[in-house]
Measured scan of single mutants.
Amino acid sequence: KRPMNAFMVWSQIERRKIMEQSPDMHNAEISKRLGKRWKLLKDSDKIPFIREAERLRLKHMADYPDYK
């Protein structure tokens, strides 16, 4: 399994928030909203998620050196 990218790290947190506020919302609608919100997010606000994704990528490389 591939490591999460910055969007996936961010969306995992945000998806939980949306599901708590709107438990009846369909997953497809949540995904659309997350995509739009990520695009509107300032680059500076994305930095912590980019760093976490990089950390996960490096850990994945160390844990699975033969992964292609």
Rank of each mutant, 00 (worst) to 15 (best):
K1G: 12
K1Q: 01
K1L: 06
R2M: 11
R2Y: 05
R2F: 11
R2N: 10
R2V: 11
R2T: 04
R2D: 12
P3Y: 09
P3T: 12
P3S: 10
M4Q: 05
M4G: 06
M4D: 07
M4C: 02
M4E: 08
M4H: 03
M4V: 12
N5M: 01
N5L: 03
A6Q: 03
A6G: 11
A6F: 02
A6R: 02
M8T: 12
M8E: 15
M8Y: 12
M8P: 00
M8I: 09
M8F: 10
V9H: 02
V9T: 05
V9K: 00
V9N: 03
V9R: 00
W10R: 02
W10L: 00
W10E: 00
S11A: 13
S11G: 04
S11C: 08
S11I: 02
S11T: 02
S11H: 02
Q12R: 07
Q12P: 01
Q12A: 10
Q12G: 07
Q12T: 09
Q12V: 04
I13H: 14
I13G: 08
I13E: 09
I13Y: 04
I13K: 09
I13T: 08
R15C: 05
R15K: 13
R15Q: 06
R15E: 05
R15G: 05
R15W: 04
R16I: 08
R16P: 08
R16G: 07
R16Q: 13
R16M: 08
R16S: 09
R16A: 13
R16L: 10
K17D: 04
K17S: 04
K17M: 05
K17I: 09
I18P: 00
I18M: 09
M19K: 13
M19C: 09
M19L: 15
M19G: 04
M19N: 05
M19I: 13
E20S: 04
E20H: 10
E20Q: 10
E20L: 07
E20I: 08
Q21N: 05
Q21I: 10
Q21P: 01
Q21K: 08
Q21R: 07
Q21M: 07
S22N: 13
S22K: 09
S22V: 07
S22Y: 14
S22M: 07
P23L: 03
P23C: 01
P23S: 04
P23D: 03
D24G: 10
D24K: 10
D24W: 09
D24P: 03
M25R: 03
M25E: 06
M25A: 13
H26C: 15
H26K: 15
H26M: 09
N27Q: 13
N27R: 11
N27A: 13
N27G: 11
N27I: 09
N27H: 14
N27S: 14
A28G: 09
A28V: 09
A28W: 07
E29C: 05
E29N: 02
E29A: 09
E29I: 00
E29Y: 02
E29W: 01
E29H: 01
I30Q: 02
I30R: 00
I30F: 00
I30W: 01
I30D: 01
I30T: 02
S31L: 12
S31N: 14
S31M: 14
S31K: 12
S31A: 15
S31Q: 12
S31H: 09
S31I: 12
S31F: 08
K32L: 11
K32W: 07
K32S: 12
K32V: 11
K32Y: 12
R33G: 07
R33D: 15
R33F: 15
R33S: 11
R33M: 15
R33Y: 08
L34F: 02
L34P: 00
L34E: 02
G35W: 15
G35P: 04
G35D: 15
G35S: 15
G35A: 15
G35V: 15
G35K: 15
G35Q: 15
K36G: 05
K36I: 15
K36P: 02
R37M: 12
R37H: 06
R37V: 09
R37I: 05
R37G: 14
W38C: 01
W38V: 01
W38M: 00
W38Y: 03
W38L: 00
K39C: 06
K39P: 01
L40R: 11
L40I: 04
L41T: 01
L41R: 00
L41K: 02
L41D: 00
L41M: 14
K42T: 13
K42Y: 02
K42P: 14
K42Q: 11
K42H: 04
D43Q: 06
D43A: 12
D43E: 12
D43P: 10
D43V: 07
D43W: 11
D43Y: 13
S44W: 05
S44M: 07
S44F: 04
S44I: 14
S44A: 14
D45K: 04
D45N: 02
D45C: 02
D45L: 05
K46L: 02
K46R: 08
K46V: 01
I47Y: 08
I47D: 10
I47W: 07
P48F: 06
P48C: 04
P48T: 06
P48Y: 03
P48E: 09
P48M: 09
P48V: 06
P48K: 04
F49I: 01
F49K: 01
F49P: 00
I50V: 14
I50R: 09
I50Y: 14
I50C: 03
E52V: 03
E52M: 05
E52N: 00
E52D: 08
A53I: 02
A53Q: 00
A53P: 00
A53V: 01
A53K: 00
A53Y: 06
A53M: 03
E54R: 04
E54K: 05
E54N: 10
E54G: 03
E54I: 02
E54T: 07
R55G: 06
L56R: 07
L56M: 15
L56S: 07
L56N: 08
R57N: 04
R57K: 05
L58A: 13
L58D: 12
L58S: 13
K59P: 09
K59V: 11
K59C: 09
K59T: 09
H60P: 12
H60F: 09
H60Q: 12
H60S: 14
H60I: 05
M61R: 10
M61G: 14
M61T: 13
M61K: 13
M61H: 15
A62N: 13
A62K: 13
A62G: 13
A62H: 09
A62P: 10
D63Q: 10
Y64S: 14
Y64C: 12
Y64E: 13
Y64W: 07
P65T: 12
P65F: 07
P65L: 08
P65A: 07
P65M: 09
P65E: 13
P65I: 06
P65K: 14
D66L: 10
D66Q: 07
D66H: 10
D66N: 12
D66P: 12
D66K: 11
Y67L: 13
Y67E: 15
K68G: 12
K68Y: 10
K68C: 07
